[in-house]
Every structure is written in C-alpha cells, then in structure tokens.
Simulated scan of single mutants.
Amino acid sequence: MTHTQAPCPPLVLVFAASDPSSGAGIQADLLTLASLGCHPLTALTAVTVQDTVGVQSVQALAAETVEQQARTILEDMPVAAFKIGVLGSVENVLAVAEIVSDYPDIPLILDPVLASGRGDDLSGEEIISAMREMLLPQTTLITPNAPEARRLAENDEDDSEPAIDVCAQRLIEMGAQYVLITGTHENTPQVINTLYGPDGVIRRDQWERLPGSYHGSGCTLASAITGCIAGGASIEDAVRDAQDYTWQTLKNGFRAGMGQFIPDRFFWARNDDDDTPDDKADEPK
C-alpha cells in the first residue's frame, strides 16, 4: 500500500513573545493560525510573566538565539508569510529586520504591540524608533490600534494628537505598504477599523462593540490576516475575512481568569450558530 503525501498547508513564521495564559503573544498566534488552516512556525523573542490581568515581567531572548531559530527554519521550509509581534529589545528588532530583508518577496505583517491591555509598557522609545527605521520600510501591512498609530507616527511638530488619517499617511511615508488602524480603543459606539493604502482609504469596517475587554484581540486579528494572506488572499480580502473571524472569536470569548476575556479561536469547533454582525461593512465610495 503506497502512502500519498498530503499537501503542505501554508507555513507562517511568527516572531513574538510568549504568554503563559495563551490569551495573547505567540500562543495566540499559534491558535489563530492553526484555526485558519495554516501551519505556524515560531521564533520566540521574549518570555513574559503575565495572566489575564496584566504583565508582570518581560525577559527578552538574546538576538543570536532569535536569529538561529528563524534561520534554521527558513533554511528547511518555504515560508508563505511573516508575522511580527513583541520583539523585546532593540537588538531583536535589528536581528529580525536583517533576517526578513533576505526574503523581500515574503509578505510581512507587523503588529506593533506597544502596551498590554492594562497599559503595561511592552516597547520603549528605542524599540519604537528601531521599528520605524528598520522594519516599517519592509512591512506589507502594519496593524496598530489608534493609540499605537499615534505613538508610532508622532513627530516633534505635533502640538496636538494627529488625526488617524494623518497617522496612516505618515506610516505609509515611513515605508509601510498598507496600514490597518483599529478602533478598539476609541470612544465610539461601534468599533471602526480603517485600511489605508498609498492612495488613502481602501475600506472602512464597522463592528458591534462587544461588552468587556479582551486579552489578545490584536494578536488574533494580525495573525488571522497573516493566515489569510499565506493562503493566497489579497490584502483587502484578508483584512475583511480576518476581521469577521476575529469578531467571532470575541463574540464567543470566555473569561477563564480574573481579568480580561480570552478570544475563542476555535469557536467554530464548539458553536453551530452562525453569529454574524449586522451592518458590519461600510466601504468607502
């Protein structure tokens, strides 16, 4: 009896920090990518001590260790997309920037995690500066929430908070091909996410604002987009489908601990209901 080899699922290499609660971080990326039919590969950048309430500590791994993990995998397997989360140190930013520069044709999705849901600082000014200079010019899509977009795009001339559209324009001028700014942290009745390209707004989606707060919603969205792109979707289709998937994970989220809810990345394995939000997309004319 001959064994026929199964086709290889899309392979995605994730650079991110661990989260023992699996709400966020590299564990959230693994769960999301696996749920969407990808095979995730990992280069661990830092070890965190955290739970659903907040982050207690972040210990960055040596840049050499991060590089060895990634190079070993990249020499062995054909990667369809890169996803970058918390890098933990300036040295790690530089190491990852150098690695991905050797693979310019592989899409790179950057989730600039600057703080935890509680507000714990995860990326200082030196790390942010290195990301601007070294990673943004190589980024296919960056997925900041509104506060992250403002922090990444701020300059010395700002007397007041720059508008979201201005932030997106600046991030594109810094080298990102596309920018998806999420409205989870804005004080609006609905969550409004806006995808920008070189010519301005590509699509704007509105989502029902769910009660409670969620641990790892940004990681889930960025990984879902990466998984869709790895599977062959265009940027716009990947952003649309990943938002729908992420909304479902939040809608079905569970409170496992004393803090934030955890998105259920495998809601489809436990739930037969077809929960779809009304009036979710408002595309620009």
Rank of each mutant, 00 (worst) to 15 (best):
H3W: 09
T4D: 00
T4P: 06
Q5F: 15
P7S: 07
C8Q: 11
P9L: 04
P10T: 12
L13D: 03
S18K: 07
D19G: 08
P20Q: 05
P20Y: 14
S21E: 02
G25H: 11
I26N: 03
I26S: 06
I26F: 14
Q27G: 15
A28V: 14
D29Y: 11
D29N: 10
D29W: 09
L31P: 04
C38P: 15
H39T: 12
P40Y: 10
A46L: 03
T48M: 05
Q50I: 15
Q50H: 10
T52R: 03
V55N: 01
Q56D: 07
L61T: 13
A63Y: 00
A63I: 08
E67C: 04
A70C: 01
T72A: 03
L74Q: 02
E75D: 05
D76R: 05
A80F: 13
L87R: 01
S89F: 03
N92G: 10
V93T: 09
V93E: 00
L94Y: 02
V96D: 00
V96A: 01
V100G: 01
D105K: 10
D105G: 03
I106R: 01
P107H: 08
L108D: 00
L108Y: 08
L108F: 10
P112I: 12
L114M: 13
A115H: 10
D121C: 15
L122G: 05
L122V: 13
L122M: 09
I127L: 06
A130L: 04
M131N: 05
M131D: 03
M131E: 01
L135Y: 02
Q138Y: 08
T140W: 11
T140E: 01
I142C: 07
I142T: 14
P144A: 06
N145A: 05
A146I: 13
E148Q: 06
A149K: 04
R150I: 13
R151V: 11
D159P: 03
S160H: 10
S160E: 04
E161C: 03
A163M: 03
D165Q: 05
V166N: 01
C167E: 00
Q169M: 05
I172F: 07
E173H: 12
E173T: 15
G175D: 01
G175K: 04
V179Q: 00
H185F: 08
T188G: 00
P189E: 00
I192G: 00
N193R: 09
N193G: 06
T194W: 07
Y196K: 04
G200M: 04
R203A: 10
D205M: 08
D205K: 06
Q206W: 11
Q206A: 07
W207S: 03
W207R: 05
W207C: 00
P211H: 02
Y214I: 11
H215Q: 05
H215C: 11
H215G: 08
S217M: 09
G218E: 02
C219G: 11
T220L: 05
A222Y: 14
A222M: 12
S223N: 11
S223A: 15
S223C: 15
I225H: 13
G227S: 12
C228N: 13
G231K: 09
G231W: 13
G231P: 14
E236Y: 15
E236Q: 14
Q243C: 12
L250W: 10
L250V: 12
G253R: 02
G253I: 11
F254H: 13
G257C: 09
P263S: 06
D264H: 12
R265L: 10
F267C: 08
F267A: 04
R270Y: 14
D275K: 05
P277V: 12
K285G: 06
